[in-house]
Design a protein around this nucleic acid. Structure first.
Lengths: 222, 222
DNA sequence: CACCACGGACAATTATCTTTTCCAACGTGA
DNA sequence: TCACGTTGGAAAAGATAATTGTCCGTGGTG
């Protein structure tokens, strides 16, 4: 086998796409700067359709875009272009721009007042597959999303395979009829299993059972 | 029964508690250092019961404690001592110690190889109410916990106040009876509201409604 | 023996749909 | 400005259907 790598070829194939609807003059300059500093191809696009599928990084200029357009753009990126990492440019402080980080495809955010050298450092980081997110936003996300592990005090609830299957379906809102069809058993059987599950995990009804599942630390350990 | 100083009432509200089961000699030195550097009272405790309720910061020494003990200790802190911020000391890299950050009471983490000046800076930050968490862990948390906002496509579901109230209760597993009692209305009314809600948000039953709420970006915007 | 499937019988809860009551906002004419 | 109808939305209630939950069984299978 060969260990030969071809960095030149790689760089020419994969570049940075800069999506912006701003004056092509400034944006072009920025693209040029990025290209020179990172030794990578950086092209400007004004329409999402033009953006090639294979790029290493997609920079989205928030400037001049309203948040709805921006959101739907990011959604498109998330849905249509698989496996691309994106980053926001010229984001406003304490704006809805910051919420776009909820999308798993967005790995970086540069504020409108970011210095050049910071931008370059961030881009390097992003190209390496790392994040570039202001610590403040990371803290906010942690603060908002973490919660006390709730199932760690569930000592030894041993669920059978069938019971686990049914619980997973419950979690997604399946009715008894749905479950009976999905597992090709009678509704009576479903009820029996559920009845046993409720007693095992100590809940009153399917809603609490669903929440029990959804609150698990790790759904796969079910 | 020892050189552990009994904190005075006035100072206890502004002090740091260092919980450790390590050699009192080193730990005592650390407490002394912290006390001098931060100009704050820092006392060592070896039993959770001894830790006073009102402290500004609780440092938990991971060294020499196994993870089960640590976890149950943090749980106790979380459950019993309300409104205290804790931080982990001497955490191992890539260990279960890091998972203790899931507990909302844990705001900081210092690895076993943390330098003195970093520790001091971190403590200052924590005393200011900020976090002190390695960026790597923040990134990992972000990566693991964020997901594409699922309610962005809900165009203009206008829920009334009552409907929002009921949805919030539903989310926590309340039955119609629970809701009727909580809101002091008849069960009939609850059913009507729910019926209307189902149609508005396009779900089949209360379980899907509950999931709809739980999948919201921001529960508060409900 | 634990797990799974199935069934009956009944109770309890939930879902659907219609109707009624209440209240606040709006416009109009005197 | 003040009654007055009118309107529309929300809250509430009633009646009925549908689903879910409880508890008791019976076998079958590895």
């Amino acid at each position: 086998m060969s260990y030969i790598t071809e960095p030149e070829l790689k760089n020419s194939e994969q570049g940075i796409a800069l999506f912006s609807n701003n004056s092509s003059l400034q944006t072009g300059l920025l693209a040029k700067l990025i290209g020179e500093e990172l030794q990578i191809n950086c092209d400007v696009y004004r329409e999402i359709e033009e953006v090639p599928k294979e790029i290493s990084l997609l920079l989205v200029d928030c400037n001049g875009q309203n948040i709805e357009v921006l959101t739907s753009f990011i959604r498109d990126v998330h849905d249509k272009i698989d496996d691309v990492t994106a980053a926001l440019l010229n984001a406003e402080h304490d704006s809805d721009h910051e919420r776009l980080l909820d999308w798993p495809c967005v790995s970086g955010l540069f504020y409108v007042d970011t210095e050049q050298d910071q931008l370059i450092r961030g881009l390097h980081s992003l190209l390496d597959g790392d994040f570039w997110v202001p610590r403040r936003l990371l803290h906010r996300f942690l603060d908002k999303n973490r919660k006390a592990p709730s199932n760690f005090k569930r000592p030894n609830v041993k669920l059978t395979k069938r019971e686990r299957q049914i619980l997973k379906l419950i979690k997604d809102g399946a009715t008894n009829a749905d479950i009976s069809e999905a597992l090709s058993v009678s509704e009576h059987t479903v009820k029996s299993h559920l009845y046993n599950v409720y007693k095992k995990i100590g809940v009153r009804n399917r809603l609490e059972a669903s929440n029990w599942v959804r609150d698990m630390d790790d759904l796969d350990t079910l």
